[in-house]
Design a protein around this nucleic acid. Structure first.
Lengths: 235, 235
DNA sequence: CACGGTAGGTGTACGCCGTACACCTGTCAA
DNA sequence: TTGACAGGTGTACGGCGTACACCTACCGTG
C-alpha cells in the first residue's frame, strides 16, 4: 500500500543526516526548541529512532559542535602568524554568527571533542611556528580565549577528558593520555611546558589567576597606550 | 497539633529568602539541579508557593543574577582608572568563581536587569573619568567584554529591553527609553555616541564586526609586542 | 534456497520538568 | 463581625529525555 511505498522511498537515517538536521533546526528555530521529539519529527521518524545513531542528547550536541567547528576555514600559510591567526579567528566568528546557539553550546559542554581539539591544536601550531615560546603561546591561548571559541579555562582538563567517559570529575594533575598527545602534538607541547615550569607549586599545570591577569593586563596596557596617543575613531 | 505549631514557627517565604536559597542550591548542587521542585523542597514548601514571589523560573534566574552581581566590590576611587578597573574586574572574577553557574546564566539571559546595568554603568563611568573618549570607552567595553562579565554584543539591546516585557524581538535602532537613560547615564552617553557617530550607515548604532576586530587587534598587537621583546614567563 | 542474526525503526511507559488553576486559611481593616 | 486579600496547597497538564521490549527487513552463511 501507499504507506509502505513511502516508507521505502524515505532516505534512511544516519548520524550525519541527524546532525545536519539538528544544526538546521537549532539555526532556524533556536536551540531551545531542539528537542529529540522535534528533531525526530523533522526527520519524519519516531523519537527513539534517533537513539540508534546518537547515544543521547549530550552526544548529539557534541556532534553538532563538531559539525560547525568543521566549518571554520583552515589555517592559511605563507603569511605571518598574525594575519593567519587573525583570518582564522574571524572565520570562527562568522561561523558563530551563522549558528548563534553554538557559542553557548560550546561553553556549556566540555570541549573534548576531536574537532575542537584539532582546531585548538592547529591554532597553537601556528603561534609556535610564528616564533612564540611555549609559555607565551600558552598564555596567548588563554588571552584569546573567548575570541577563539568561547572557551575559558579548561583546555587541558578537556584534553585529558578526551577518550574518557563517565561524569566529569575534578581532574587530578595528570599527563595527557598518550593517544591524545599523539593526535594533538601542539596541545601536548603546551601542556607539558605548563606543567613543569611552575616548579614549586604542586601539580596544577596552569595558574588560572595568572592567565586571567595576563589577558586582562594585555588589554588594559593596550588601552592605556591608545588613550595616551589620543586615540580617535577611524573613518 | 504538632504540625500546626511547626507551620507557625516556620519563617515565612519571601523573594529574598527564595533567591538566597536558589543561589545556595546552584552553588552547591549545580545549576542543572536547580528546579522549582528542588528549590521548594529546600525551603520546606510546596513548589507552587514559590510562584507567589517570583513570576516564573526565568525571573528567578534574573533575581539570582542580581544577587551575585551585587557581590562584586564597588569601584574604589582615588587611584588611576587602570588599577580601579583592574581591581573591579578581578573582584567580578572572584564572584564568578564562587558561583560557577553565573557566567553561563548571565550569558544565556538578556542582561537587562538593573543590577547588571548598574554594574556596567559604573564601569563606563570610571573609564570616562579616566580620560577615555566616549568612542574609545565604547570599544573598550566590548574589548573587555567577556572579562567584565561574559557579555558579548548585546549591551544596548539589553538596555533598550530594560523595563519592557514580552519576547525578545530583533530591536530596531531606537533610542534608549528615558527612564533607563536617567538611571544609567554612562550607558546612555555611550549609546548616544555610538548611534550618531557612524554617520551614513543607517541605524545600527554599533558595528559588531568593528568591535570584534578592535578587541582582537588590541590583543594581537600586544602579543606581537611581547614576542618582539622576547617575552619570558615571570618567575 | 532456507534461516538465523543483526541493524534499524516503532510503541509504550516512566519520572522529571515548569506552571495553570482552583482551593484553603490566617490576618487585619472597616 | 465580616470580608478582602496575601500567601501556602493540591491537582493536573503537556512537554521533556530515554529505558525497554518489540517488530521487520535484510544479508551472509550453510
Amino acid at each position: 500500500m501507499a504507506e509502505q511505498a513511502e516508507k521505502l522511498r524515505r532516505t534512511p537515517l544516519s548520524r550525519d543526516r541527524i546532525l545536519r538536521a539538528a544544526v538546521a533546526l537549532a539555526d532556524g528555530a533556536g536551540i531551545e526548541s531542539l528537542s529529540m521529539r522535534n528533531l525526530a519529527q523533522e526527520l519524519d521518524v519516531v523519537p527513539m529512532a534517533l537513539y540508534k545513531h546518537v547515544a543521547n542528547k549530550d552526544e548529539l550536541l557534541d556532534g553538532m559542535i563538531d559539525v560547525v567547528v568543521g566549518e571554520i576555514d583552515p589555517l592559511t600559510s605563507g603569511e605571518g602568524w598574525q594575519p593567519a591567526i587573525r583570518r582564522r579567528v574571524l572565520s570562527a566568528r562568522q561561523m558563530l554568527r551563522r549558528h548563534p546557539w553554538a557559542s553557548l553550546a560550546i561553553e556549556s559542554r566540555n570541549m573534548a571533542t576531536p574537532a575542537v581539539l584539532g582546531y585548538l591544536d592547529s591554532m597553537i601550531g601556528a603561534l609556535r611556528a610564528g616564533g612564540l615560546s611555549t609559555d607565551l603561546t600558552h598564555h596567548v591561548m588563554h588571552a584569546l580565549g573567548s575570541r577563539i571559541l568561547g572557551f575559558s579555562q579548561e583546555l587541558f582538563d578537556a584534553a585529558r577528558q578526551a577518550g574518557r567517559s563517565g561524569p566529569i570529575a575534578p581532574q587530578p594533575p595528570a599527563p595527557l593520555p598518550p593517544e591524545v598527545a599523539l593526535r594533538f602534538p601542539h596541545v601536548a607541547e603546551i601542556a607539558a611546558a605548563a606543567s613543569h615550569d611552575d616548579g614549586s607549586v604542586v601539580g596544577q599545570g596552569c595558574d588560572d589567576q595568572f592567565e586571567f591577569e595576563f589577558a586582562l593586563d594585555l588589554l588594559l596596557d593596550g588601552i592605556e597606550r591608545l588613550r595616551e596617543q589620543g586615540w580617535t575613531a577611524p573613518r
